[in-house]
Simulated assay, not measured.
Amino acid sequence: MVLRGMGDDDGHGNALPRPGTLLRDPGPVSVTPLDPLRPAMRAGNSYVIWSAAARRVQQVLDAGDGPEEVVFAPGTLFRVLEVRKGDGGGAPVQIFLRELTGPLGPQTNPAADRAALERLVQAVSQRSGPAPAGQWPERCTGLPFGAGP
């Protein structure tokens, strides 16, 4: 489970993707793990992603005390599982995604989608409030994410 912050944007000014939409970014996508041992990394306005093939990267230039970074390869495909819109009273916008892998392309697997969504929702429900911007690696924040395949 990994997170990508939406920065300062609350998601209300941008069109949010609909469940079932496929997202693909042409470049590498940096994210940070949803780490239960690092409670300061909370899921605020964010993409919450079920990862299957992302790779951890060692931060050569950082002192090692910041959040870990994980990278998806260019062109990785994601399915939007659910979109939870903030209520304007401090509730975050969260877009739940599942990474799609395999040589056959974006196969539909409702059981896998439901299982991934349940685990993602459970993981973020134990956290409250967004992490301060300084706690997110710079490359792990920002909109927009993905373009249609």
Rank of each mutant, 00 (worst) to 15 (best):
132 P>W: 04
80 V>G: 02
124 V>R: 10
27 G>H: 14
68 E>S: 14
75 G>A: 11
34 L>G: 02
137 P>L: 12
98 R>H: 04
99 E>C: 01
76 T>F: 09
139 R>I: 06
33 P>R: 14
110 P>V: 01
75 G>N: 08
40 A>S: 06
80 V>P: 00
105 G>L: 10
114 R>E: 12
129 G>R: 10
60 V>L: 13
95 I>V: 15
50 W>L: 03
58 Q>V: 06
109 N>M: 01
38 R>T: 04
76 T>K: 06
114 R>T: 03
64 G>S: 11
34 L>S: 04
60 V>N: 09
123 A>T: 06
31 V>R: 01
77 L>P: 00
83 V>H: 09
109 N>H: 03
111 A>L: 02
84 R>I: 01
61 L>V: 09
41 M>P: 04
115 A>C: 00
29 V>K: 12
86 G>H: 08
135 Q>H: 10
65 D>R: 07
131 A>P: 02
20 G>K: 14
54 A>K: 08
111 A>C: 00
29 V>Q: 14
132 P>F: 04
141 T>G: 07
134 G>Y: 05
123 A>K: 09
35 D>Q: 08
118 E>K: 11
112 A>E: 04
57 V>H: 09
49 I>T: 00
73 A>H: 06
86 G>N: 11
89 G>F: 14
61 L>C: 08
120 L>R: 00
78 F>K: 06
78 F>D: 00
121 V>W: 01
52 A>C: 05
104 L>D: 07
111 A>N: 01
122 Q>S: 11
36 P>H: 08
94 Q>P: 02
62 D>R: 13
119 R>Y: 01
33 P>E: 15
87 D>M: 05
20 G>Q: 13
47 Y>F: 15
72 F>D: 05
48 V>D: 00
103 P>W: 12
124 V>H: 02
70 V>K: 06
62 D>Q: 10
41 M>N: 06
